[in-house]
Amino acid sequence: MLVERHATEMYRLAAAIVGPVDASDVTQEAFVTAWQRLPTLRKPDAFPAWARRICANRAKNWLRSRSARGPAVSLDADDDLAARLPDRTANFQHAVEASATLAPAYGSLTDDQRTVLALHYGLGYSLAETADALGIRVGTAKSRLNAALEVMRGVVLADQGASSEVTP
C-alpha cells in the first residue's frame, strides 16, 4: 500500500530535518496533506518525489514554527555541550554523543544548510533529489552544501590542530 511503502522513507526524511522526536508528527502531517492533495497529482509515478517534497515542506514549516516559538540558546552559554547547541538542534541531542567535535558545528549551521547536508550525506539523496525535495535549484543545494561543509571542515581542522598541539 502507498502508505506502507513510503512511511519509513518519509519518516527518515522528516527525522533528518526536524529530528526524531518530532518526526512522527511531521510524517503524519505530510501523509494527511498528501492524501488530501492526491487528486492534484496528475502523474501517479511522480508520487515518491511529490510526497518527499510535501514531507520536506512540512518539516521546514515545523522548523520555522519552532524558531518562532523561542530564541536559540546562546553559544556563549558554556555550561555543557548540550547547552551550547542552538535550540534548533534540540532534537539532535544524540549528535552530542556521536561526536563532541562535530556536533556543535552541526548545530551552528542554518536550518537550510543542515537540511541539505542531512539529505545528501545522511540519507544518501543525490543533489538533484535533495534539490527536488526541498524545491530549490541544484545549484542552490550545492551552494548550501558547500557552505555547510566549510563550517564542518573548519571544525575538523581546528580539532586536528588542537590535537597536534598536545600530541608532539
Partner: peptide, 29 residues
C-alpha cells in the same frame, strides 16, 4: 575530512521509525 563529516551526519540523522508509526499514519489519514 568529508568522509568523517558524512559519517557523522549519517549517524546523526539515522532514525528508525517507531513501531506504531504505520498504524498512526493510517489512523491519521
Amino acid at each position: 575530512m568529508d568522509e568523517q563529516i558524512a559519517a557523522f551526519v549519517r549517524e546523526t540523522v539515522h532514525a528508525e521509525p517507531p513501531p506504531d508509526l504505520l498504524p498512526s499514519l493510517l489512523d491519521a489519514v
